[in-house]
Design a protein around this nucleic acid. Structure first.
Length: 469
RNA sequence: UCCCCUGUAGCUCAGUCGGUAGAGCAGGUGGCUGUUAACCACCCUGUCGGCGGUUCAAGUCCGUCCGGGGGAGCCA
């Protein structure tokens, strides 16, 4: 079974699936809790491979070494050697009857921050370097891992190319939000030009550079060569936003497809989300039952229902009809042309549709310049996928592939076409209809797990005034 | 950035009308022939976020700063 040079000892997840036997096995991990009586002592051992750990049983009298047992406390790293036996207790099939235990690292009870009791997520954020050792964050970590892999599975099996768009961007205006500047200039002694502004020609790249807020524009260039591509990488926004669904550094998935219109774009988005949900239900059953019970009641059933139900399609104009009926209940009443607030999006997906809904064809004034203009000259081929509890989870569009229309739109928004010369070249040479969307990875993890705060679904959250660890 | 809430034992919280603090859990000791949120008994634990003010007296009232949470905006 293990043929590589590096011999992998079995993980606890594998041991838990084995039958009792006379073979000697070794289990390595961290002690979650210890229970002891006069003659018998139990450790629950966890190595991150599963939610529920392996019960290790020690016969106190035959084991001897009472001082060793005393030093093994919650948090200690140990390796236990013995046989897998069927368990007398009712909560597990097998357990490890330890003949010997090696203690690698103690976790002194008076200083170890994790106790064998439930902690709040807020407290765990303060000890983010240790929180992966908890049930909740461990489960999040496994789900996040499965989702990451599923993203590649979905696109790879559909023949999409994984493209790495740049993290450092020299584009003057990507237009998706405030950006972080990347510089090696001495901030205590910034070089200035004659008119007093910062002289970026002295900077590392010879011009001002920033961290990317989106790989879309570069993604489009590769879609118009490889046909179907996707990006999956870190994204940075310097917005001063302080909410439970925003981060300054987050991961984003951005597929881009040539010879593709908005209808096909919507179909891909729907199939993609459903694929991710299916994979998690298949491969993280134990963790998902945990989330369903303790974090968001019934979240498994919600995902199952989403998988089975076709997404509702609705134009912005039709959505407005629904919203205006209920205008009295809103803090911000809507009219045609106004942007949808969080309360409106949630009303549509939770009250009107009772499930995911894709809203399309928004007024051009409230959407980005690169979206394809409709024949009515008033709306663009944009789409937002809205889901209950979270609101917008995907934003996308068919792109404007007509050079003259795109240039006109840019001028109307006071953008300089020369700054986008390479982006416009795509429309000059071999232009084709194309479309794509962006999906915030952490928001998917949030939706799937039911975790309320986005800072708990990424290992080390970066947000306003927060860059610890 | 704006609005609201909040900061008390290691953790989660209570603390009335202003009179120098209390519970659960965690931890310790003892008990228990197999526990699994272990159980039973006893025990230990405090710069009440910082600074300033009002008062005979402040955890409590006022000001201010800092931290945390929720909502809004912006978005993914």
């Amino acid at each position: 079974m293990f043929q590589g040079v590096f011999y992998m000892k079995p993980r606890i997840s594998q041991l838990l699936q084995q039958s009792p036997g006379s073979e000697i096995v070794v289990a390595e991990g961290w002690v979650r809790t210890k229970r002891e009586s006069k003659t018998v002592c139990f450790f629950e051992l966890n190595d991150g491979s599963t939610l529920k750990g392996l019960q290790v049983v020690v016969d106190v009298e035959t084991f001897g070494q009472p001082e060793l047992l005393l030093r093994i406390t919650t948090g200690a790293a140990i390796a236990c050697t013995g046989k897998l036996v069927s368990s007398i207790g009712g909560n597990q099939e097998v357990e490890l009857k330890a003949d010997s235990i090696e203690l690698f690292g103690e976790a002194p009870v008076d200083t170890y921050p994790l106790q064998k009791k439930r902690h709040t997520l807020e407290y765990l954020r303060e000890i983010a370097h240790l929180r992966a050792r908890t049930n909740t964050i461990g489960a999040v970590t496994r789900v996040r891992n499965v989702l990451s892999f599923a993203i590649h599975e979905f696109f790879q099996q559909k023949g999409f190319m994984y493209v790495h768009t740049p993290i450092i961007s020299a584009s003057d205006a990507e237009g998706a939000g405030e950006q972080f500047t990347v510089t090696t200039l001495d901030l205590a002694n910034v070089p200035k030009t004659k008119n007093g502004s910062v002289d970026f020609s002295k900077d590392f790249f010879g011009k001002q550079t920033k961290l990317t807020v989106s790989g879309q524009l570069e993604g489009e260039t590769y879609a118009l060569a490889m046909k179907n591509i996707y990006t999956f990488g870190p994204t940075f926004r310097a917005e001063n936003s302080n909410t439970k669904r925003h981060l300054a550094e987050f991961w984003m998935i951005e597929p881009e497809m040539a010879f593709c219109n908005l209808e096909e774009n919507m179909a891909v988005a729907e199939e993609f989300l459903k694929f991710l949900f299916k994979r998690v239900l298949q491969r993280c059953d134990e963790d998902m039952r945990f989330f369903s019970q303790w974090v968001e009641k019934g979240v498994q059933d919600v995902l199952l229902k989403v998988i089975e139900t076709p997404f509702v399609h609705m134009t912005y104009t039709d959505a407005l009809v629904e919203l205006e009926k209920a205008n009295a209940t809103f803090d911000y009443p809507v009219h045609w042309g106004s942007d949808l607030q969080t309360e409106h999006e949630r009303f549509l997906t939770e009250q009107v549709c009772n499930g995911p809904v894709i809203v399309t064809d928004y007024p051009k004034e409230i959407k980005a310049f690169y979206m394809k203009l409709n024949d009515d000259d008033k709306t663009v081929r944009a789409m937002d996928v809205l889901v209950p509890r979270l609101g917008e989870i995907i934003g996308g569009s068919e792109r404007e592939s007509r050079l003259d229309v795109l240039e006109r739109r840019m001028r109307a928004l006071a953008l300089n076409p020369e700054d986008y010369w390479w982006f416009l070249d795509l429309r000059r040479f071999g232009s084709a209809p194309h479309a794509g969307f962006g999906l915030g990875f952490e928001r998917v993890v949030q939706y799937v797990t039911g975790m309320q705060n986005i800072r708990d679904v990424i290992p080390y959250p970066r947000a306003v005034k927060q860059a610890d660890f």
